[in-house]
């Protein structure tokens, strides 16, 4: 079977993983790949842990990624890297947004935010860490964090040579095209 690439985007409901995945999928379809993408709706979106998955290759059957199958994992929130770790290959590339969103059990003091995640994972595989939130803030809109992360993902996948400006402009809110293209480039430059 022709090789299939698996990309896992993990984060917290409301962080914009779905939009980033949509842009990525559009570009991959345009490049002639068979692409499948899966997302989670409903209850989990209310501040819960969410994942969006993209699989592409010559022919893709399953729309979701099983354990030990992801080639690249992009973590929109740091702790989510741990939760989804068993879904990645031992030599996967991991992109981590150094950004913490404490979950409800942490906020009420029932659990602790785990420490040393980046150090631990860096010792095991190729990990790129950067502060996407700060970059988006500097560009003037913290909400563009997802597009900054998309830029980093595209760099990590080695698929920079597509018409990303076009795909971004087509998929983001009108009036925010330029900001998002800037965010995307900043993300590419960050890792």
């Amino acid at each position: 079977m022709a090789e299939i690439k698996n990309i896992l985007l993990v984060g917290v409901g409301g962080q914009g993983t779905i939009l980033a995945s949509k842009i990525l999928s559009t570009a991959l379809v345009d490049a002639g790949y068979d692409v499948k993408m899966s997302e989670v709706h409903g209850m989990a979106q209310r501040g819960g842990s969410v994942t969006t998955q993209i699989r592409y290759g010559e022919k893709v059957f399953s729309p979701i990624i099983g354990k030990g199958e992801a080639d690249v994992m992009v973590c929109f929130e740091k702790m989510e890297a741990l939760r989804w770790l068993e879904y990645v290959k031992p030599d996967a590339k991991i992109v981590i947004n150094d950004f913490e969103i404490p979950s409800a059990p942490i906020l009420v003091g029932a659990e602790e935010y785990p420490q040393g995640i980046i150090e631990e994972l860096s010792a095991k595989t190729e990990v790129s860490v950067f502060k996407a939130a700060d970059i988006a803030k500097e560009l003037g809109n913290p909400k563009a964090m997802n597009i900054v992360l998309l830029g980093a993902l595209v760099k990590a996948m080695g698929i920079e040579d597509m018409d990303w400006d076009k795909f971004i402009a087509e998929n983001v809110k009108k009036g925010f095209e330029e900001l998002n293209i800037k965010a995307f480039r900043a993300g590419m430059a960050a890792i």
Binding site: V12, G13, M43, A44, Q45, R46, G47, G48, S49, M79, E80, L82, R83, L85, S103, A104, P105, I106, E111, E112, Y113, P114, G116, I117, E120, L121
Partner: peptide
């Protein structure tokens, strides 16, 4: 990983 992520219920 040796560590576990803290729960993140909705």
């Amino acid at each position: 990983s040796e560590q576990k992520a803290a729960g993140r219920p909705p």
